[in-house]
Simulated assay, not measured.
Amino acid sequence: MDALADVLAAAKVGGTVLARVDAASPWGIEFPRMPIAVFHAVVDGSCWLRRPGAEPLRLVTGDLVLLPVGAGHVMSGAPTGPATPYDELVATLPGNGNGNRDGNRESEIHLPGPGPRTHVICGGYRFDGRVSRPLLALPPVLVLHAAAGESRERRELADTLRMLTAELAEPRPGSRTVIDRLTDVLFVHILRRWAAEHGEHGTSWVPALRDPEIAAAISLLHEDPARPWTVEELARGVGVSRATLSRRFADRVGESPLAYLTRWRLELAGRRLRDTADPLSVVAESVGYTSVSAFSRAFARQWGTPPSHHRADHRPA
């Protein structure tokens, strides 16, 4: 079981390119808070990422930033200065009054000026935030600098970005499919590279997957979440002692193996309640609960509402 792929599939992660920005200083674009993860890739030139409460961050050709929870921010040609709201810019584009909300094409934003030019690809990743704690647990901003050194992850990310840039520059039949798929692939390479460069620092789920035993343990839990796992059984399955697995899992993931399993079970249950009409007993059994009452209590603790209310609240109109 590929745990990362399982989480991405469960969270229904899907990417799209929102805009191609061709701007000459002075310029600034204010992006509002959005219910998606947002990325910006600097194709040529340099610019600044400005976030409330943080120092401006300079980006140069080849740099990429990801804001996992779509926090409001500004992309600009200088560390200070005015910025025009993104929605206002998009609304003024010919034949594009609704921006890129139809998902059929990216907006092309041209901002003339006397200063140096910068080209940026702006994109986003939509996901089901109710089944994506590993994604939401990422730092508020991931910065991947082009000059961070040579590695397999760096080459793969750069190659994917290069292919995406070329496809956007010269659209051909089938380009929309290629662009969407490359954008999805880009997300995986972003996570891989960030994990490779930050895997030894702090507690986070994605870098933890670089630890072979932790990755194996998480994979076993994802492969059979309904199984009545014990830490001893899980440790035997990955070839380490119970104490070693417990310590390393807590250090790298931020919670115990069984706490992780409980949360993942209930996230899967929440998705099944929203997407199916299965009885509570079937949903409970599918994630390892033999008692509907025990399942309901655990579900309410995590989601803040009983399973029946959760289903009613999220039933499609």
Rank of each mutant, 00 (worst) to 15 (best):
M1Q: 13
A3P: 12
L4N: 09
D6P: 09
V7P: 04
V7G: 05
K12M: 13
V13G: 05
V17M: 07
L18E: 04
V21Y: 03
V21N: 04
D22G: 11
I29F: 03
F31M: 09
M34E: 13
P35F: 03
I36L: 07
A37N: 06
A37P: 01
H40R: 03
A41P: 04
V43Y: 00
G45F: 02
S46E: 15
C47V: 06
L49K: 10
R50Y: 09
R51H: 02
G53F: 07
L57P: 08
L59S: 04
V60S: 14
V60Y: 09
L64F: 11
L64S: 10
L64M: 13
V65K: 03
L66H: 02
L67C: 08
P68K: 11
P68H: 07
P68Q: 08
H73N: 00
V74G: 01
S76E: 02
S76T: 10
T80M: 09
A91M: 08
P94T: 13
G97P: 04
R101E: 15
D102W: 04
D102T: 08
G103W: 02
N104R: 13
I109P: 01
G115H: 03
P116L: 05
P116T: 06
R117C: 09
T118K: 00
H119V: 15
C122M: 11
Y125R: 02
R126I: 03
R126A: 00
R126G: 01
V131I: 14
V131Y: 13
S132Q: 02
S132Y: 01
R133A: 13
L135D: 01
P139Y: 05
L142R: 04
S151I: 02
E156S: 12
E156D: 12
E156F: 12
D159Y: 10
D159M: 10
L161W: 07
R162T: 02
R162P: 02
L164S: 01
A169Y: 07
E170L: 15
G174C: 00
S175E: 05
R176K: 09
R176N: 02
D180V: 14
D184W: 01
R193A: 11
W194K: 00
H198L: 06
G199M: 03
G202Y: 11
T203Y: 12
T203I: 15
V206P: 00
V206Q: 00
R210E: 14
R210C: 14
I214R: 03
L220K: 12
L221C: 06
L221M: 08
D224C: 09
P228V: 06
V231A: 07
R236L: 15
V240I: 11
T244N: 14
S246I: 13
D251M: 15
S256Y: 11
P257V: 13
P257R: 12
L261T: 03
L261W: 06
T262I: 14
W264Y: 11
R265I: 02
R265G: 03
R265A: 01
R265V: 02
E267W: 08
A269W: 00
G270I: 08
G270S: 07
R271Q: 14
T276I: 12
D278Y: 10
L280E: 14
L280C: 13
E285A: 10
S286R: 00
Y289G: 03
Y289S: 00
S293H: 08
F295V: 01
A298G: 08
F299A: 01
A300M: 15
W303P: 12
T305P: 13
P306K: 12
P307T: 01
S308G: 12
D313C: 14
R315E: 11
P316I: 03
